[in-house]
Design a protein around this nucleic acid. Sequence first.
DNA 1: TATATTTGTGTAAATCTTACGCATTTAGAA
DNA 2: TTCTAAATGCGTAAGATTTACACAAATATA
Lengths: 230, 230
Amino acid sequence: MTNIQNIRVAVDAIVFGYQNNQLYVLLIQQKFGTEELYWALPGGLVQNDEALQDAVKRELKEETNVTVNYFEQLFTFGDDIKRDPRNRVISVAYFALVDPSKLTIKADSDADHAQWFKIKEVPPLAFDHNNILKKAIERLKAKLTYEPVGFDLLAKEFLFSELENLYCTILEKEIDRRNFRKKILSFEIIEETDQYAPSKSGRPAKLFKFNKLKYNKLTKKGFHFEIKFA
Amino acid sequence: MTNIQNIRVAVDAIVFGYQNNQLYVLLIQQKFGTEELYWALPGGLVQNDEALQDAVKRELKEETNVTVNYFEQLFTFGDDIKRDPRNRVISVAYFALVDPSKLTIKADSDADHAQWFKIKEVPPLAFDHNNILKKAIERLKAKLTYEPVGFDLLAKEFLFSELENLYCTILEKEIDRRNFRKKILSFEIIEETDQYAPSKSGRPAKLFKFNKLKYNKLTKKGFHFEIKFA
DNA sequence: TATATTTGTGTAAATCTTACGCATTTAGAA
DNA sequence: TTCTAAATGCGTAAGATTTACACAAATATA
């Protein structure tokens, strides 16, 4: 009855990026078993005196040289006892959104094996990582509609069309450009800058930026961000 | 560097019930340390060959003699290294909703120490369990607004006024009775029965029941349950 | 028989969403 | 230089939803 527990605790990171109308996820190449090479989510075992949050940040930094401030806990995968065929391992998955400046990986001893993949071109991953990724995408889609997380995936200053395309691409839906703009502007959480973006063709577009402070204030007053689509 | 990992994995159950316009949570009395007695959430260590889901169900059954079919994963608590002062323990918390028939605890050797508490009268709990409970309540509130989970807390056949009071009580908001009824009925996921409830005073009320099958069908077609309040 | 109490239904005004049209500003082709 | 294509920015009318209320119906009890 008083069997000693022998379960390992791991963390995995799903880090999303966005560029050129494409959603990306950060993967690492991992040796699994003797010879087979698999792509996998960054992650690893938690240390005894380490908060789960800190463990993800550390592993991500070690394996990809990418630093992320905010991770949100996604889900803990531990129902499948053989999800890692070597040992019983449960994994607490975290996801993060990074802006385009982080999409080029800085050279590093370990980071050589890290790479950004277009979400539609993700190969079969190690363990149950395809499954974890799927859940993360679902969460991202949901969050886009009820929290202003799209801005986390864009540069500080962005075009309205970029924001609009981000929603279209990730949610895989058509959006009426004019109604979308009106809706977002009505929230009064983004501001015009006096900058214009260099345009390849067509009328030059204003750059906007997200006012997080104002968003937080409004939220305290009961404001709720929400974008719905037909 | 290759330190052996020494982290225990536990599960905790937050089980909610509802009766007489009151939200209840199921707690157990737990010996902690040498003499102090604390109330705590049901739960315990996961076995080596046991799915997390199965672990919660088992612990709940063992400690309270309550059986629950569906648990939803709430959150994994593992950032505070000293949340259990004896060992490093991370806990995967699950929550469940039960109907009023389960609110009377069946006598059992271990279940003697189990008890339903009104949510407003929960004492200081062991470990970080007050914190876990807080998070569970937040989730319940959120879910009430975007999924038809209220019905899980009511008997199979219920009065409209019961449903309405459930929303008022748990969300701590006022609702316009007539608009609420209209809104819920417009979803076409609940049905009149030909039963009437015994009334103490006033016009007798029809009993309704939730048509889960129809809800599932509608959901597949893109229907989305949602109740908002001014 | 009158009163208190709770249920059941309706409707008008206000707000929000949806579906569009069109002028504006630029780059590049003719 | 002028014309065209491409993208931005703004507006408006019709439709749908939400909100705020009022009143009739059915019962138990005094």
